[in-house]
């Protein structure tokens, strides 16, 4: 089951541990955001593009990462040219595109379970403040599992609403959907309690 945005490959970028990629991404983008200059953005753009080429996924995949933000980047760029000149515009838009491409690269080269495992690992030090990493893992798994179930509930409620001739009523959709969702959660909670989740 490939639920996420992962694209398989065996490049160095694919094989790098998820935690390393996430930390590099966070530290890199934060540093770049704080020290935004034509110089740093150029270096970051070259590094990110090099990493993108190294994934071996091809130009179309790289393009697909930045395509969703092209429109807004053009608007921001035009605004910046008018506001503070072309150099500043290039820096702001360049940063935006580098950030989106770098983040997209991490997402497409790391399978969903590995990313979720990284979150669980990151929750480890929070044990001191009462966060149980095993429960974090359980919660994430339950949420992933519940997405198609609740989407199915939404479909059922939608059909019921149309059948009752209330096709446009938001209330006729949302109230039953929330109530059915809560009932589903009740049964899920009972099943978890029966399996001893509350016992430790």
């Amino acid at each position: 089951m490939n639920l996420g945005s992962y694209l398989p490959g065996d490049s160095l970028v694919h094989r790098a541990p998820a935690g390393v990629k996430l930390v590099l991404l966070a530290v890199g983008l934060l540093a770049l955001g704080v020290f935004r200059s034509p110089w740093t953005v150029t270096v970051a753009a070259v590094l990110t593009l090099a990493a993108g080429i190294a994934t071996g996924l091809g130009a179309r995949v790289l393009w697909a990462q930045i395509r969703p933000v092209l429109l807004v980047s053009a608007v921001v760029g035009a605004f910046q040219v008018w506001l503070s000149g072309p150099v500043q515009a290039a820096v702001v838009v360049g940063w935006l595109l580098v950030a989106v491409l770098a983040a997209g690269l991490v997402t497409v080269t790391t399978p969903l379970p590995r990313l979720l495992d990284a979150v669980v690992t990151a929750a480890g030090p929070l044990r001191r403040v009462g966060v149980d990493p095993e429960r974090v893992a359980l919660l994430l798994a339950l949420a992933v599992r519940s997405v198609p179930v609740v989407a199915g509930l939404a479909r059922d409620v939608q059909e019921a609403r149309i059948a009752r001739g209330e096709g446009r009523s938001v209330r006729a959709f949302a109230v039953p959907l929330v109530i059915r969702t809560v009932r589903y959660a009740d049964r899920l909670g009972e099943a978890l309690a029966a399996r001893g989740v509350d016992d430790d």
Partner: peptide, 9 residues
């Protein structure tokens, strides 16, 4: 357990 279920759902 019920809290976790509600949050996930």
């Amino acid at each position: 357990a019920r809290d976790l279920a509600l949050v996930a759902v």
